[in-house]
Design a binder for these strands. Structure first.
Length: 571
DNA sequence: GCCGTTTTCGGCCCGACTGTTTTCAGTCG
């Protein structure tokens, strides 16, 4: 069982208990545990089965939750959860996703008005029943009806690339206004999280009303959901919601910290403030009522005896211990990338020629690329068999002889077949400069099968790297069920590299496992998997993911010069 | 339900906005 499933069950339990009005701190305990579990690189199932005593050493996991984890691993679920699910219909839990409706109102609707489904809710709101209730009203009934309309979108997280494009456009337009002095993105988008729940923008302004008017009238904005003196919330045409916050100049840094998050990072900062007799909020760091710092993020961190911490790692995963151990990483930057080792051409499903891809990469200042078209199993993409592949490599040599200043590796993205064998024979693979082994089919196999396939590939002396390891497509297709601990250890043992696939839908391996790979000394390569010249542009997203993993230049193999990189290639 | 250099009880981060109120609860981030 995957960590995400166990975490999901704790989240669900928390939702159900919340509707029942349970102690909020108990709910927090469940949600904290869910977060710990989903952020863990090791398989929680393995720990529960092999070394159950260690469960309680995980943050936020005590005796009770350790037992619950063991129960879930053994039986697939929790009796308590099953009982609650029988008492409270799934539709009632879904009502929590209606913006403006929380557990208290849901509980009232369910137990006092006997509303058991979304259809019941809609009918009650339309018939005016809800508006009559104490604590409700016409507006609340309206909110419910609107919320039901948007329910399919609400709670859906959007891929970073899609969210950031909208955020960037709005910021670009707002910053031209005279009424805007400072402006920044904030929230999970600024932290470059792979998916974003909503957008946050922070400004300083001498005329906040004018900025709010401008946002309300922006072509990307559909509806104003709330508007006050310092805060405006809007819904974009895409369904994504955005908060605009206005703060004073002396609070800008504190507010930027506060609204960038993560919540967990901020909680640690506030505790740290308390320990120093200070209070931290979005207006600044205060001693009694006196502002101590807040103008810039650096000021606030410094007052708390911390260096400035890059947004990407503000997750309370490793940043604070890294500071203590004086090991805060200098995060990798896009400009340090010197090669792209996963791309396609017209030989299979790409839209550009070898030469066009090479020129595109050269224009980015790269020193080397690998042309890695599909192997024959991927019939849909016109995958290459041995004969066509050898001809393709000849074509690569020909292009290489015509172009200077960039090294083109003769590569292949070779499928690991369902039976665990490689899609091309060893003698063919041995002729390649660069072999990316990947799973495209049979992603739903058991963990044992998936792991065996991957282990076979790792042990194959011709395989350079595992590409988009989990096979997930964010928001579309779940990861294959694989045992990361075993796979990563094998990679480290056999000198097999790991890819961070930079495609916004993949970002695979993810930040948590890339951090683990770094710890094990496995070289990471960030690749675009480009299917066109334009496709080479997504490298930035892979770099974001690497930064979230705490990776530095030295951890990423394709930051090396061509001369250095050659030494990493398997002979 | 977790946690502990004020440690086994009594805390657990903090403030804005809205709607339904007549001083505040619920919701959200």
């Amino acid at each position: 069982m995957q960590n995400s499933e166990i975490a999901r069950q704790f989240e669900e339990l928390a939702d159900l208990l919340e509707i029942q009005g349970a102690n909020p701190f108990r709910l927090r305990a469940y949600r904290n545990a869910a977060r710990t579990i989903s952020g863990l690189p090791e398989s929680i199932e393995d720990i529960a089965k092999n070394t159950p005593k260690e469960l309680q050493s995980l943050p936020g996991i005590g005796k009770d939750l350790a037992e619950k984890i063991e129960t879930i691993v053994e039986s697939g679920t929790l009796p308590q959860l099953e009982t609650l699910k029988e008492e409270i219909p799934a539709d009632v839990v879904r009502m929590l996703n209606i913006p403006g409706i929380g557990p208290k109102k849901v509980a009232f609707l369910f137990s006092e008005l006997s509303i058991h489904s979304l259809d019941d809710l809609k009918a009650a709101a339309e018939q005016g029943v809800i508006a009559e209730q104490k604590g409700f009203g016409k507006k609340t009934a309206q909110i419910i009806l609107e919320g039901l309309e948007h329910l399919s979108q609400a709670g859906n997280r959007v891929r970073l690339a899609d969210a950031k494009a909208q955020s960037d456009e709005i910021i670009h337009d707002l910053q031209t206004l005279d009424s805007v002095q400072q402006i920044s993105e904030a929230g999970s988008c600024r932290r470059r999280k792979e998916t974003v729940g909503d957008l946050d923008i922070l400004i300083t302004s001498n005329a906040p009303g004018a900025v709010m008017d401008a946002l309300a009238n922006h072509p990307l904005v559909n509806t104003v959901l709330a508007r006050g003196e310092t805060k405006q919330r809007v819904r974009l045409n895409s369904g994504l919601e955005m908060d605009l916050r206005v703060v004073s100049e002396e609070s800008y840094g504190a507010a930027l910290l506060y609204f960038t998050g993560s919540k967990e990072h901020n909680i640690v900062l506030r505790r740290r403030s308390q320990e120093r007799g200070l209070k931290l909020n979005e207006y600044g760091l205060f001693r009694k009522d006196k502002l101590v710092s807040g103008k810039t993020e650096e000021d606030v961190y410094q007052t708390l005896d911390l260096p400035w911490i890059p947004p990407e790692i503000r997750e309370n995963r490793m940043e604070f211990t890294a500071v203590e151990e004086n090991k805060l990483p200098e995060l990798i930057e896009l400009k340090q990338i010197r090669g792209d080792l996963h791309m396609h051409t017209t030989a299979t499903d790409g839209t550009a020629s070898i030469l066009e891809m090479a020129e595109g990469a050269k224009a980015k200042g790269y020193q080397y690329i690998a042309i890695t078209d599909h192997s024959k199993r991927v019939t849909m993409a016109n995958g290459l068999d041995a004969k066509r592949l050898r001809a393709h490599w000849k074509a690569i040599e020909k292009v290489q002889s015509k172009i200077s200043g960039i090294q083109i590796l003769k590569g292949i993205e070779c499928d690991i077949l369902e039976d665990g064998s490689m899609d091309l024979p060893d003698d063919v693979l041995s002729e390649a400069d660069w072999v990316i082994a990947v799973l495209h089919y049979g992603l739903k196999q058991s963990q044992e099968q998936i792991n065996q396939r991957l282990l076979n590939a790792i042990q194959n002396p011709h395989v350079s790297i595992l590409g988009h390891l989990s096979g997930r497509l964010i928001g579309k297709r779940p990861s294959a069920d694989l045992n990361y601990s075993e796979i990563l250890k094998a990679c480290a043992d056999h000198g097999t590299m790991l890819e961070i696939n930079a495609h916004p839908m993949r970002l695979d391996i993810d930040d948590i496992h890339a951090a683990k790979a770094k710890e094990l000394g496995i070289p990471i390569v960030i690749n675009t998997d480009a299917h066109s010249v334009k496709g080479l542009d997504v490298m930035q997203y892979g770099v974001y993911q690497a930064r979230r993993a705490g990776l530095s230049k030295k951890d990423v193999a394709n930051t090396k010069t061509w001369k250095q990189f050659q030494k990493l290639l398997k002979k």
